[in-house]
Design a protein around this nucleic acid. Structure first.
Lengths: 98, 98
DNA sequence: TTAATTTGGTTTATATTATAAACTTATTTA
DNA sequence: TAAATAAGTTTATAATATAAACCAAATTAA
């Protein structure tokens, strides 16, 4: 009997999935952009960026722009691979009739 | 700026999504089938069926077959609607390039 | 010039979740 | 009749997601 695939728990989280999804399409994005684009709170975003970074799915670079902190995020090759296999696994769940 | 859609938290859970996905494709399924097909433990499955049932996404019918308990599950119209809109919302996350 | 507000976050606390372990009851099988 | 299996349920725990509270620096207002 065919068993459904595991869904990577790092990506199976609304906010982390949103972040990775945005970064896949945009090369780089800063904290403020991600915050408004995802509609999340700063606290939640901060925690999830930290987690994605620790897991190696994204890189996070901290600098300054106009004397203010600037947090810039980018997807990593691992992040891309994991996202692609997550999408593949999800297809099994989303198209159960095939 | 476009903000990503909310993902229904009832469906955004690996096991509950698996159950609903299976039921969408199969009209009805019993506890044991769902357990082996999802690869879950009985305890976890019991809890998640209860939740899906409470939320009106599935119906759960308890009877006996060969003197043993038989738990039969079916998707409800609400379950179908919610699943379809969950899939639609997820597309935004899965196809970020469009 | 100093008080209040805004920006760009981080840390901490809390409530919810998912999950498995332990348990139950009935039925076979040895 | 004792042990094992079936079909679950209940309870305990660990992990999560989330928001609230907090902080430091810069800007604006009084």
């Amino acid at each position: 009997m065919k068993v459904l695939s595991e869904l990577d728990p790092i990506l199976h989280s609304q906010l982390r999935l949103a972040v990775v999804s945005i970064l896949i399409g945009t090369e780089e994005a800063d904290f403020t952009f991600l915050k408004t684009r995802t509609g999340s709170t700063a606290g939640n975003l901060s925690v999830q960026l930290e987690k994605l970074s620790t897991e190696g799915y994204i890189s996070v670079e901290k600098s300054f722009r106009n004397k203010r902190p600037l947090t810039t995020c980018r997807i990593t090759p691992k992040g891309i691979r994991q996202f692609e296999s997550y999408v593949k696994a999800l297809q099994e769940y989303l198209s159960p009739h095939e």
